[in-house]
Design a binder for these strands. Structure first.
Length: 436
DNA sequence: TCATATT
């Protein structure tokens, strides 16, 4: 019955969660706690673990009782200490969403374009002292009709949110203001990635695979995900249809291949239309298509390039979507059939490669396929941009043996693939000779 | 252009 006092500091309003990277996988929470407590008050350490294997993912959360203590930990440790076994210094920063939560930042939408900062300020000052306010503006300083706003306290922000959101119309406006908590950095990135994704996959692809997207719409209407980099007033992230003349003229309409205009022809898939491959790479002789290629590593053209067959979907290719050309034949070494999931398995010293100038559309699977002729591929990883999902065009391949790696280097280094020459070399090893 | 990982 009696009020239960907050039992844990770690769940209180003012506590701060830090994200810590470059944590050796063998370290325990107790060890980390002891280490961080040398620099700041710490309530708790949680190692972030793989959901399936429960193994450490090499990072953790640190809960500090206040922002001040959290800052002490950041200042003392971030980029300043390298733990034994780690390859680079500790990364210590506010966990995703913490800064936003701490700053109680509000988004205000549906502002009339002609209202000024001071008018907004006057309205919102009724609920507390405003620490920061900016109306978002375009290139000619024209208002975008929304603003970000910070109060001194969360209570003030909440009071304003509840009093104004959906209830208050500014002078001359027929719609009420929208007030909500600002998106976190992570939510923005997610939206950005989704946008990049739809641009990459919808626009250049022939519509036969996306009938639901365009089939029922009047010409000139394209689906948009919430257009802006922030909340569109009143939409809350829901798909909506907007007229987009720019995309109609230059983006979407002109991308439809002539053969598909006006005749309602569907079902021409990229697979059957080799002329629609986005780029032309040196293709293996036709007789090799359908077998694992190369069967013999010392061919002139050691690659089975999947171009024109699967390259439209590099980002979410899965073993089942990988066509014939690359997985059959002699491969006891097929990447897809061995353990390929989860964390990167590293081979013995000298068996791990760093590869640069990987074609943009290669994913992990394509990389593995390209290198499987030289030995069993333990893992293959192409690095991608976190926000956009686009390949960074470099990656790693690990073999069981250094001999395989050497063979791959001699065959593949300098090999021209998609306009650029691959650079294939042994991966650097940062933590080779660690002290006992 | 060398493993960046957010329970």
């Amino acid at each position: 019955m009696a009020e239960v006092k907050k039992e844990r500091k770690s769940s209180s309003e003012e506590s701060v969660k830090l994200f810590v990277g470059q944590v050796p996988k063998h370290m325990t929470e107790a060890q980390l706690l002891a280490m961080f407590q040398e620099f700041a008050l710490v309530d708790e350490v949680n190692i972030i673990k793989d959901k399936a294997t429960r193994a450490s993912r090499g990072c953790c959360f640190v809960i500090c009782p206040s922002r001040q203590e959290a800052d002490k930990a950041v200042n003392a440790c971030h980029n300043k200490k390298t733990l034994p076994g780690a390859s680079s210094p500790l990364q210590v920063k506010y966990a995703d969403g913490e800064l936003e939560r701490l700053e109680h930042k509000l988004f205000v939408g549906m502002l009339p374009k002609n209202v000024s900062e001071s008018e907004v300020s006057t309205l919102f000052s009724k609920y507390g002292s405003i620490k920061d306010l900016q109306i978002l503006r375009g290139s000619q300083q024209t208002s975008k009709g929304c603003a970000f706003l910070k109060y001194e306290t969360k209570e003030q922000a909440l009071a304003a949110l509840e009093a104004i959101n959906g209830k208050y119309k500014m002078e001359g406006s027929s719609v009420p203001l929208v007030v909500k908590w600002a998106d976190t950095e992570k939510e923005r990135q997610a939206r950005k990635a989704q946008k990049a994704q739809s641009l990459a996959s919808n626009v250049p692809i022939n519509d036969s695979q996306h009938p639901s997207l365009f089939g029922a719409l009047p010409m000139g209407y394209v689906p948009q995900y919430n257009g802006y980099g922030y909340q569109a007033p009143g939409t809350y992230g829901v798909m909506q249809y907007r007229l987009s003349p720019m995309q109609n003229q230059h983006g979407f309409h002109n991308m439809i291949p002539p053969v598909n205009q006006g005749n309602g022809l569907r079902g021409i898939t990229p697979d059957l239309a080799p002329n629609m491959a986005p780029r032309s790479y040196a293709m293996p002789p036709a007789s090799y298509v359908g077998s694992a290629y190369p069967a013999v590593p010392d061919l002139q053209h050691p690659l089975a390039y999947p171009g024109g067959i699967m390259s439209h979907r590099p980002l979410n290719s899965s073993p089942s979507s990988v066509p014939h050309a690359v997985v059959s034949g002699n491969s006891t070494t097929s990447f897809g059939t061995s353990k390929s999931s989860g964390s990167q398995v590293e081979g013995p010293p000298g068996a791990n490669l760093f590869i640069y100038h990987i074609p943009q559309e290669f994913g992990d699977q394509e990389l593995a396929n390209a290198f499987q002729a030289f030995g069993r591929v333990l893992s293959a990883k192409v690095f991608v941009d976190k926000a956009t999902g686009a390949s960074k065009c470099f990656g790693f391949v690990s073999y069981e043996s250094p001999e395989a790696a050497q063979s791959a280097i001699s065959m593949m280094n300098g090999y021209q693939l998609g306009g650029k020459k691959l650079k294939v070399q042994l991966k650097r090893d940062n933590k080779q000779n660690k002290p006992y």
